[in-house]
Amino acid sequence: MHHEAPIVDFLGLNFNLSNVLMITVASAVVFIIALLSTRRLAMKPTGMQNFFEWIMDFVKNIINSTMDWKTGGRFHILGLTLIMYIFVSNMLGLPFAITYDHTLWWKSPTADPVITLTLAAMVVGLSHYYGVKLKGVGEYGRDFIRPMPFLFPLKIIEEFANTLTLGLRLYGNIYAGEILLTLLVGGLAHAGVGGMLAAILPTLVWQGFSIFVGSIQAFIFCMLTMVYMAHKVSHDH
């Protein structure tokens, strides 16, 4: 049950090769899908162009629900890339998990807290960057003592809490899904013919549910990203 991670040391940094592989695969899948879907753009959209325009409108609506489009428009591409990347990452671990020599190679990249926390920290960092850029240092700093100066420590904690919850929520959901799938397929299904039969239905159900959870988590990640952004860049909240 326990799989080793293929960690190598390179230039003093630890690289989990499985993560490197899956990040590359997820990015490649997202890029290829997006590229193929937008090759033949037409004024009258067909097929995949419709789908991608729907995604664009979907993300646009997410942004519009948290801030006005004048400030939020700049986050459109970030939101689009985030939701696509996270969705594809969540889906990658569903059909199979490949282990080689007790080493787990194929999984969802988002089933690793390092990856999700990296994304979360990037988002929160970007929100601070845009907060300073759009409101100026003074206004940005004053936001930390609003509405009451004694809330300042809480505001500081909030930033770290945001980062942690944003990253760990995604990680927990996806990792839990993969663990249960692993238990069902790797454990129950190996326990004889009866176990195999018994594992079919729960596996199907859980895979369906994981697809649902993966989509919802991608949406939530994008949504919360925009909420944190709006917190930092809008003047009244």
């Binding site: 940094l13 630890n14 993560n19 490197v20 991608f52 591409i77 890339t81």
Partner: peptide, 28 residues
Amino acid sequence: NGGDILYQLIMFIILLALLKKFAWGPLM
């Protein structure tokens, strides 16, 4: 896993740039 963090960040930024140039830009 400092390497993973770095790799994820770089890959995400590359993906962002590529998608902006090849997919989102033309679509928008």
